[in-house]
């Protein structure tokens, strides 16, 4: 019996995979999955260009070792240029109504960091150091993009597109009855369709996350720890598991699954403001708990809203994974009950 169920599930998966991976309608899923890849690729290009520029400048305008650090406020332009040589970027002037104040900026680089010295009336007043970006900084940027864009929007909407179509799409295309006319339990059909959606979504979104992580560490000599990479890929796959179950059910329960999707989006977005007990009835709570690097809080958030943010301890890894599986299983049980009662009445779809 179990063997037959497996064989039937595999048959459903085979039928669904082609539709899910190669559907022209699903092209936008690839686009939102690839958006952060393009962003990190752009970042890498810009970073490498800057690095090359600085090295080229350092070669053309060599600065004696330690001399840049020896420059102190109050020094004159002449003293600075005597120590450091000619700058690679020089000067600008600003006029004030009350009199003429000369402001100048001199820029140097040691090939890695950029030093900008600001003079007013010939005296050094400010020193700005723009060091080369580090992997540690980029990890935080990645954590922010991953949690606020990738999980909450890209995977969320990708799952809306993939999973709601598994049943609803076939009802609209009037082809679901072929499945229902096979000697197969509806639960097996649901499990097969869910597995197909999960394989497709996980393949698309974990591949994209892997590419992003590779691009993130590409400009650096060191790379991210293996555990961190595995954690991000795992979180992406678990996001597909959690959101996938929710949107599969939405496709079965609602004629227009975009309405429940909007509701879920609002609920998930409101998660930081929910009381601790309610936070746990969401997918994002468990996903964020599993992220290896915490995303920094939004510094520009309205202070009133900041007051409403309820802090709660992130779930432990075991609890978070178990919680996600529990949420997905509960939703799938409901969906299976609905699938058992499903009737073919295309006229009303």
């Amino acid at each position: 019996m179990i063997r037959r169920y497996w064989a039937q599930m595999r048959a459903v998966i085979r039928l669904e995979m082609k539709k899910t991976f190669l559907s022209r309608r699903g092209l936008w899923v690839y686009l939102i999955a690839l958006a952060p890849v393009l962003m990190f690729a752009g970042h890498d290009l810009s970073m490498m260009r800057t690095r090359e520029e600085r090295r080229a400048i350092a070669a053309a305008h060599p600065v004696p070792a330690g001399a840049l650090l020896a420059v102190q406020p109050g020094m004159t332009r002449e003293e600075v240029t005597a120590r450091l040589g000619q700058p690679n970027l020089d000067a600008r002037q600003i006029r004030f109504a009350g009199g003429r104040v000369r402001r100048e900026l001199l820029s140097y680089t040691d090939g890695q960091s950029r030093y900008v010295f600001g003079f007013a009336d010939g005296q050094l007043q400010s020193i700005t150091v723009r060091p080369e970006e580090t992997l540690a900084q980029d990890r935080v940027i990645f954590a922010t993009v991953f949690q606020f864009f990738y999980l909450r929007l890209a995977i969320f909407f990708g799952c809306v597109g993939i999973f709601t179509n598994l049943f609803r799409g076939e009802l609209i295309e009037k082809s679901l009855h072929y499945y229902l006319l096979a000697p197969m339990r509806r639960e097996v059909l649901l499990a097969g369709k869910y597995a197909a959606g999960l394989i497709a979504a996980a393949a698309i979104f974990t591949s994209s996350a892997a590419l992003q992580l590779w691009l993130l560490s590409m400009p650096y000599d060191s790379s991210l720890p293996g555990r961190e990479i595995a954690a991000y890929l795992g979180v992406a796959a678990l996001a597909c598991l959690g959101y996938g179950s929710v949107f599969l059910a939405a496709g079965l329960f609602f004629r227009n699954p975009l309405l429940p999707a909007a509701g879920v989006l609002v609920w998930e977005s409101a998660n930081p403001f929910l009381p601790s007990a309610l936070k746990k009835i969401s997918v994002i709570y468990y996903l964020q708990s599993l992220c290896p690097v915490a995303a920094p809080p939004d510094r520009e958030i309205n202070p009133l809203l900041a007051l409403l943010i309820s802090s709660s301890e992130p779930a432990s890894t075991v609890f978070a994974v178990a919680g996600l599986f529990a949420v997905a299983a509960a939703v799938l049980v409901l969906a299976a009950r609905r699938a058992r009662l499903l009737e073919i009445n295309y006229g009303t779809e």
Binding site: R3, R4, Y5, A7, Q8, R10, A11, V12, R14, L15, K18, K19, L22, S23, E170, E173, K174, S175, H177, Y178, Y179, L181, A182, P183, M184, Y346
Partner: peptide, 30 residues
């Protein structure tokens, strides 16, 4: 296993050839 039904709906799963259509849905029998 006892019944075969050819419905009035003139719709098919997308992208399949005639053979793939029959074959794929027979695979659902396990």
């Amino acid at each position: 296993t006892l019944v075969g039904y050819s419905t009035q709906f003139d719709a098919f799963p997308r992208g399949l050839s005639g053979f793939q259509f029959i074959y794929s849905f027979l695979r659902l029998f396990g």
